[in-house]
Simulated scan of single mutants.
Amino acid sequence: MATNRSRRLRKKLCVDEFQELGFELTFNYKEGLDLEAVSAFFERFIDEAVEGNGLGFIGSEDYGFVCLGKRGSVTAEQRDLVEAWLKKGHAELAGSTVSPLIDVWYPENSVNA
């Protein structure tokens, strides 16, 4: 594909100055945790950490992707807020991982400065 694109096309393709960033999450739950406890934790996570920071989540209770709830990019501060919420010591979690910011539409591309 051509690299000399019009501003309109760059916006439509979400590239260059219109790149949108998000991050991946994985959750590791404690052994023997029942489904109700996992669901309650996940609901709290969505309400407090995701929607409470103006973000959106796509995925499941084990793995997912966080992006902005509207067009645009997740900021490093928003990512850090979600990571801090996960590290508060929730009894249901054995651990979690939060990836660095990555391109939402083209994960193989590097993040623009």
Score class of each variant (00 low, 15 high):
Asn53Cys: 10
Glu43Gln: 08
Asp103Arg: 00
Phe45His: 00
Asp34Ala: 06
Lys12Met: 14
Asn4Tyr: 13
Glu43Pro: 00
Leu68Met: 12
Arg7Leu: 14
Leu86Ile: 10
Arg8Ile: 15
Leu21His: 01
Leu35Ser: 10
Arg8Ser: 03
Gly22Tyr: 02
Val111Ser: 02
Phe65Glu: 05
Val98Met: 06
Asn112Arg: 04
Arg79Ser: 05
Val50Asn: 03
Pro100Gly: 06
Ser60Val: 13
Val82Arg: 01
Glu83Cys: 10
Gly22Ser: 09
Leu68Thr: 11
Ser39Leu: 08
Asn109Glu: 04
Ile58Phe: 06
Glu31Lys: 11
Gly89Met: 09
Arg10Trp: 09
Ile58Tyr: 01
Asn28Leu: 11
Cys14Glu: 03
Ser39Ala: 09
Leu86Ala: 03
Ser73Ala: 01
Glu36Cys: 14
Thr97Phe: 10
Ser39Asp: 07
Phe57Gly: 05
Met1Gln: 14
Pro100Thr: 09
Arg8Tyr: 07
Val38Met: 03
Ala91Tyr: 00
Ser96Ile: 06
Lys11His: 07
Leu55Ile: 10
Asp103Met: 01
Thr75Cys: 05
Leu35Gln: 12
Ala37Thr: 11
Val111Thr: 04
Pro100Leu: 02
Leu55Tyr: 04
Lys12Pro: 12
Thr26Lys: 14
Ile58Cys: 11
Gly72Lys: 06
Gly32Tyr: 13
Ser99Tyr: 02
Gly52Ser: 13
Asn4Pro: 09
Leu35Thr: 13
Asp62Glu: 12
Asp62Arg: 03
Gly95Leu: 15
Ser39Pro: 09
Arg5Asn: 12
Arg10Leu: 14
Asp62Gln: 07
Ile58Asn: 12
Arg8Leu: 13
Leu33Arg: 01
Ala2Gln: 10
Leu9Glu: 08
Ile102Met: 12
Asp80Asn: 03
Val82Glu: 00
Glu48Asn: 06
Val98Thr: 13
Glu17Gly: 11
Glu92Trp: 03
Ser39Gln: 09
Leu101Lys: 04
Ala37Ser: 14
Glu24Lys: 09
Cys14Gln: 12
Trp85Gln: 00
Ile102Leu: 04
Val111Glu: 04
Ala113Ile: 05
Ala40Leu: 09
Asn28Lys: 12
Leu9Asp: 06
Ala49Thr: 01
Leu25Ser: 07
Phe42Ser: 02
Phe27Val: 01
Gly72Asp: 01
Ile46Ser: 00
Lys12Ile: 15
Thr75Ile: 03
Glu48Ser: 07
Ala76Pro: 05
Ala37Phe: 12
Val50Ile: 15
Ala113Ser: 10
Lys87Val: 02
Glu92Lys: 07
Phe23Gly: 03
Arg5Gln: 11
Thr97Gln: 12
Phe57Glu: 01
Trp105His: 08
Glu17Pro: 15
Ser60Glu: 05
Phe42Thr: 05
Cys67Trp: 04
Ile102Phe: 08
Ala113Val: 00
Phe41Arg: 00
Gly59Arg: 10
Asp16Gln: 15
Arg5Cys: 15
Arg5Ala: 14
Asp62Ala: 11
Ala2Tyr: 15
Leu25Ile: 13
Gln19Trp: 08
Glu48Ala: 10
Leu35Cys: 02
Asn112Ser: 10
Glu83Asp: 10
Glu51Phe: 08
Leu68Lys: 14
Phe41Gln: 00
Arg10Cys: 09
Phe41Asp: 00
Glu31Arg: 14
Ser73Lys: 00
Ser39Lys: 11
Leu81Ala: 01
Ile102Trp: 06
Glu61Pro: 03
Thr75Gln: 05
Tyr106Trp: 09
Ala40Arg: 08
